[in-house]
Write a protein that binds this DNA or RNA. Structure first.
Length: 652
RNA sequence: GCGCUCGUAGCUCAGUUGGAUAGAGCGCCGGUCUACGAAACCGGAGGCCGCAGGUUCGAAUCCUGCCGGGCGCGCCA
């Protein structure tokens, strides 16, 4: 909305500078003035032109402000500060544009397919708070992409044949002496059971170092397939994945397809990738040195020199983890000579089917996945090195465009604050005591499980709802508590920028006062309450609001006078900035930007709400104006909350 | 050792293409509810923006060095 206005303005001003000064102006930067009184947009170009024109910036700014032609949508220009040209928008026109924009529906997706991979939890234990950050970042990023008209495919990679699963199988077989039928009898929550077992297996390994052999034995069997360990691993993995899907469903996170490592192995994806890598000499056989007998890939260092090399195929002929990742990345772009088969794995509450990969075709009309023109991998920052190797793999194969379109959406981990460790009753080692936070560790069973956190939030939300809403049926209160829980959790994970480590603290995560999800929801509920009450008091006005606005507000000469209220104007101005913020958030991979923007808008709405008691406003025109502002604000906020994956409770 | 990243109010954090008087939440002090529900709002105190140089009309933001955290760097997975 504002983006288009700026684009127009910029070209008009550039044209003016060209004519007036006879120079070719640089691309004009646009900024937001520090205070609304200064104007709505600020152009700092006089500073840049000062040298060329040999005039002080302030003089240039004044000349431009005085001599620039009338521009549509602009009320006036002003020279300000040491040499800014500030723009005052036509507020009435902006308000009308904004409303018609908020009424417009969604557009059909265009452009090539974008694959976003996120979640990727090892299917051997319950999801924890770190996984929640991953899934919420990924899911929200997807919502932003979709809202700006991109076509998106959501993948959640399942490493069902790795050591982590093998360790749990070792636990079931050697430690618990359980066969498949016994494992099937383990009651839910199965992922919780595995969480404990996994940690137990690790201490069991440590007690007797020779026991690590069981891991190798089981791992080999799983990779080979067609044996009891393989079947056991499949069962464990599938059941844990189902648990993960249910956990993520609780917070509104869904997937299109679950590509599995087992199919990458069975369908021999690596063979094809290996062939390509050898043919194009992207990897070379190492004749001597420390990597003798391996196939290695050169990683470019400073000044284009080959600084180091990474082993892709070991001297015993097996492929490393990163090698399989290269094959998988090639498949995502449709650059591999092979593809998966698929079968339905799960149907989410909205009725959408989640597909999983398979070795053979088992259903008619298999969907097609992969073949993207752009790929985002949402993985924490500790995987940066390997992600770089994968991209280098594409580049070495000559797929430069695809390499450029491969983005590692990296973010920092969620760690446990000292206070959190105390809450959990965790004994800290001497070295850990001196740290600002402690890393979550599945091996040690150290962490906060996702479902535990969600349950705690649910309990607290329900208490708060019951305290405030005594006349609601319990089912409704529960629904509202759930919506508040999702709002609190999602906003909590989104408000930090991705490079900042979250030192998890229950107090902060469970707080419903201040900057958090419930605050945003509450703002909309307040706005909704105005209109609910209005429908009862004055049904005619509530029903015909849009018509009323059309006939009694837009042409009313009082409108521009009412819009002189800067607090109201700032609110409207910022709502119109949403699309710009979405694009910025996508470009910078910084989803926190949209979360902060939503909070900012909600804050301004609350201020407005407090200042004006709309329903008791005696002046009809004023009341209509305030109703229109409130309605615009709630529509803007609903849209913003939808982008964040946060629902609006009926009451709070 | 090399690479990445962070250091901003008592605490947790925004401040991303260099811009005008550095912001928010929590906490603290003091106010505002017979209601469009206070999960809110208003006011106040509280800042060598880690340190030192440099570039620039202008630096929390860019460059260099240093100090202090964190992460990564295996034929492991």
């Amino acid at each position: 909305m504002l983006t288009e206005r700026i684009r127009l303005l910029r070209s008009q001003l550039e044209g003016f500078l060209r004519d007036f000064y006879g120079i070719e102006p640089p691309e004009l930067q646009v900024e937001v003035p520090p205070r609304i009184e200064f104007g709505d947009l600020a152009f700092p170009f006089p500073f840049q032109l000062a040298k060329i024109l040999r005039k002080p910036p302030r003089q240039i700014a004044s000349e431009v402000a005085e001599n620039a032609p009338q521009m549509e949508g602009v009320a006036g220009l002003e020279a300000a500060g040491a040499g800014f040209v500030n723009v005052f928008l036509d507020r009435s026109m902006y308000f009308q544009d904004l409303r018609s924009r908020l009424h417009a529906g969604a557009t059909e997706p265009t452009g090539g397919k974008i694959v976003v991979e996120h979640t990727n939890i090892n299917p051997n234990k319950a999801a924890h708070i770190g996984h929640l950050r991953n899934a919420i970042l990924g899911d929200t990023f997807i919502r932003l992409l979709k809202s700006s008209g991109r076509q998106v495919e959501i993948q959640n990679y399942i490493d069902n044949t790795g050591v982590q699963v093998a360790d749990v199988v070792v636990g079931f077989h050697y430690l618990r002496k359980m066969d498949l039928s016994k494992i099937e009898e383990v009651p839910d929550p199965f992922d919780y059971y595995c969480w404990d077992l996994y940690a137990e297996v690790f201490s069991w390994y440590e007690l007797e170092s020779s026991r690590i052999q069981y891991r190798h034995e089981v791992l080999e069997a799983i990779e080979a397939g067609g044996n009891a360990f393989y079947v056991m691993a499949q069962y464990v993995s599938d059941r844990v994945v189902k648990a993960h899907l249910r956990t993520m469903e609780r917070i509104g996170v869904n997937y299109d397809v679950l590509p599995r490592e087992s199919e990458i192995l069975h369908l021999k994806f690596w063979d094809d990738a290996f062939q390509q890598l050898k043919e194009k000499e992207a990897i070379l056989f190492s004749e001597d040195g420390p990597n003798k007998g391996c196939w290695v890939m050169a990683l470019p260092g400073e000044n284009g020199q080959d600084a180091e090399e990474k082993v892709i195929v070991r001297s015993n002929g097996t492929v490393t983890y990163v090698g399989k990742d290269i094959a998988y990345q090639l498949w995502k772009f449709g650059l591999l000579g092979k593809t998966f088969h698929y079968r339905p794995f799960h149907t989410n509450p909205e009725g959408q089917v989640v597909w999983i990969t398979d070795d053979v075709a088992s259903v008619e009309d298999e969907p097609e996945f992969g073949g993207a023109s752009r790929v985002y991998n949402v993985i924490d920052v500790r995987q940066s090195y390997l992600q770089r190797v994968v991209v280098q793999g594409l580049r070495s194969l000559g797929y430069n465009e695809e390499a450029d379109n491969s983005t590692h959406f990296s973010y920092e981990m969620v760690a446990l604050s000292p206070a959190c460790c105390r809450d959990l009753g965790i004994e800290l080692s001497e070295t850990d005591k001196n740290r600002p936070y402690v890393e979550v560790s599945g091996r040690k069973g150290l962490g906060v499980k996702a479902d535990d956190l969600i349950d705690k939030l649910l309990k607290k939300s329900l208490e708060e709802v019951l305290r405030r809403q005594q006349d609601l049926p319990l089912e409704k209160s529960k629904l509202i508590a759930h919506q508040i829980t999702v709002g609190a959790l999602r906003y909590f994970m989104l408000k930090y920028t991705r490079n900042s480590v979250i030192a998890f603290d229950f107090g902060e995560a469970l707080s419903f006062e201040g900057e958090n999800g419930p605050y945003l929801q509450y703002s909309v509920v307040r706005a909704d309450n105005i209109f609910r009450k209005l429908s009862k008091r004055d049904p005619a006005l509530a029903e015909g609001l849009d018509e009323n606005i059309q006939t009694h507000l837009w042409d009313n000469e009082a409108l521009s006078l009412l819009l002189e209220d800067n607090a109201v104007w700032q609110l409207l101005l910022d709502i119109g900035r949403t699309e710009e913020v979405v694009e910025q958030s996508i470009d910078s991979l910084e989803v926190a930007g949209i979360a902060k923007h939503a909070f900012n808008v909600a804050q301004q709405f609350n201020l407005f709400y407090h200042k004006h008691h709309i329903l008791s406003e005696p002046d009809d025109t004023k009341q209509l104006f305030y109703l229109t502002v409130a309605d615009t604000a709630r529509r803007g906020l609903v849209k913003l909350l939808d982008l964040l994956g946060i629902e609006i409770p009926e009451r709070m």
